[in-house]
């Protein structure tokens, strides 16, 4: 059900974020529109993961606000964010290693909206990732990196979110697997989910996204469509090595 792209779903308005005394984000503003793949690119330490953590309420902005479909997100506690329809595929996957794959997936569907559709969601995830179905009884910690990433994505889908955030899904994966994971991100988007993707892998992500923001030293430096940024001199020089 490809919804009309364009309506603002998530709006981040001028947030300042600190880790203790160290300021990491300066007046970061951007918006994610319904149905799109929005990419936030930037070098290591630019503040990409901090942005995701702030949207998940694990960090609280000292200034600015975050709105999801008009509702404030930044005032919620971390465990209340998923109820809004925002799920996350965290950096490093963060599966529950001693639980089985299926138990990990079930943990994804605790929110009141997702719970009644649990069986249906499970079927949907297994259909999308047949590999995960094969491994369902195995402890998540024993899976390979690529398989774990699939489970992490599946766990995010189990929440039946409107917005799914990916935090560096290609981290630690081989180029071939990275390709595959980005393919899955597109697949998820094609299922009707809005995607916020945070990546270091600029080349791949700019090619697949609708729009992108470039984060540099905690500030939004550039924005535009994927194609626009691909042909931008600064991006070509600093990120694509062209």
């Amino acid at each position: 059900m490809p919804s009309a792209k364009g309506e603002t779903m998530l709006r981040v308005e001028g947030i300042d974020v600190f880790y203790g005394d160290v300021q990491v984000l300066w007046e970061v503003s951007f918006e994610v529109r319904e149905g799109e793949i929005l990419v936030l690119v930037g070098a290591n330490g630019a503040g990409k993961s901090t942005t995701i953590k702030t949207i998940s309420s694990l960090l609280t902005p000292s200034r600015g606000r975050i709105l999801f479909q008009g509702q404030p997100v930044h005032t919620r506690r971390p465990f209340e964010v998923i109820d809004l329809g925002i799920a996350q595929v965290p950096e490093g996957r963060r599966l529950f290693p001693e639980m089985t794959v299926e138990e990990n997936l079930l943990m994804g569907s605790l929110s009141p909206a997702a719970k009644p559709r649990r069986a249906e969601s499970l079927e949907w995830v297994y259909e999308l990732f047949p590999r995960v179905l094969e491994r369902r009884k195995q402890a998540a910690g024993t899976l390979s990196g690529g398989e774990q990433q699939m489970v992490a994505i599946g766990r995010g889908l189990m929440a039946r979110p409107k917005l799914l955030m990916f935090d560096e899904p290609s981290l630690g994966l081989s180029p071939l697997l990275t390709e595959h994971i980005f393919e899955l991100v597109r697949k998820v988007n094609a299922e009707g989910l809005t995607v916020l993707l945070v990546e270091q892998n600029v080349h791949h992500t700019l090619a697949m996204c609708d729009r992108a923001y470039v984060l540099e030293n905690g500030r939004i430096a550039l924005t535009g469509s994927g194609d626009e940024l691909m042909s931008n001199d600064h991006v070509r020089e600093a990120y694509l090595g062209l």
């Binding site: 998940s56 694990l58 506690r77 971390p78 465990f79 209340e80 964010v81 998923i82 109820d83 799920a87 996350q88 965290p90 963060r94 599966l95 529950f96 290693p97 001693e98 639980m99 138990e103 079930l106 943990m107 994804g108 605790l110 929110s111 766990r155 929440a159």
Partner: peptide, 21 residues
């Protein structure tokens, strides 16, 4: 029960799943 185990294994990830740790 699964939430208890999840918090034991990764409390932050559990809270992302909607678990009040």
């Amino acid at each position: 029960g699964r939430s208890i185990r999840a918090v034991a294994q990764d409390a932050e990830a559990a809270s992302l799943m909607g678990v009040n740790a």
